[in-house]
């Protein structure tokens, strides 16, 4: 494991978080395929060691360092456990900024067309049943993208990885919209 030491090996005092990428912070190599169980296990293990609660009776400087360590650890965990954020982060590590930052316009015409059609279908859905069908399809698409992404990263095809990441981002947003739509329909039915 290459993770930087959390504690000074001489005096045992907690150290500043330092500049580590999110993968190495959890003792992993930068790769799209990560073992979720290992991420969880390492995260909880490090939290046990550096969480600010462990330093509540320590001097202010150590408390502040523990807080910074915990902030860095939480950030790494949040990115690594979510495939979309993990993919975007990996692209940025490789010098490519995916169109994942908000409000960036999508330039892929195929994706634009798909998105417009899907939105129309959602707006036209009037029953929970219809919404659930659209939800299930988008969910399945999102899962399929994950294995494509894994292949793209494995063969170092960053253009493909970038396109897939953008598409995954769109599907996430769409799934959110299906939930909102579902609540709207439920409420309309509830008051009817």
């Amino acid at each position: 494991m290459t993770a930087q030491a959390l504690f000074c090996h001489t005096c045992g005092a907690i150290q500043p978080p330092g500049q580590l990428d999110h993968f190495r912070r959890l003792g992993l190599e930068p790769d799209f395929d990560v073992d979720g169980d290992i991420v969880e296990k390492r995260y909880l293990g490090f939290q046990r060691a550096i969480h600010p609660d462990r330093f509540a009776t320590k001097p202010a400087k150590e408390r502040a360092l523990a807080e910074r360590q915990a902030v860095a650890l939480n950030e790494a965990y949040e990115v690594l456990k979510d495939p979309l954020r993990r993919a975007a982060y990996l692209l940025s590590l490789k010098g490519l900024d995916a169109a994942v930052s908000k409000d960036e316009t999508v330039r892929d015409p195929e994706l634009l067309m798909e998105a417009m059609e899907a939105r129309e279908a959602l707006m036209e859905a009037t029953s929970i049943d219809q919404v659930e069908k659209l939800q299930a399809k988008a969910g399945a698409d999102a899962i399929a993208i994950l294995s494509d992404l894994s292949k793209a990263f494995a063969s170092d095809d960053l253009t493909a990885a970038n396109r897939l990441t953008t598409r995954l981002k769109y599907l996430r947003k769409y799934l959110e919209e299906t939930r909102t739509r579902r609540i709207t329909i439920e409420q309309a039915q509830g008051t009817a």
């Binding site: 600010p52 807080e67 915990a70 902030v71 939480n74 950030e75 965990y77 949040e78």
Partner: peptide, 10 residues
């Protein structure tokens, strides 16, 4: 910062 983000966070 989105809701349900673990704290502490910056």
């Amino acid at each position: 910062i989105d809701r349900n983000t673990p704290i502490p966070v910056a």
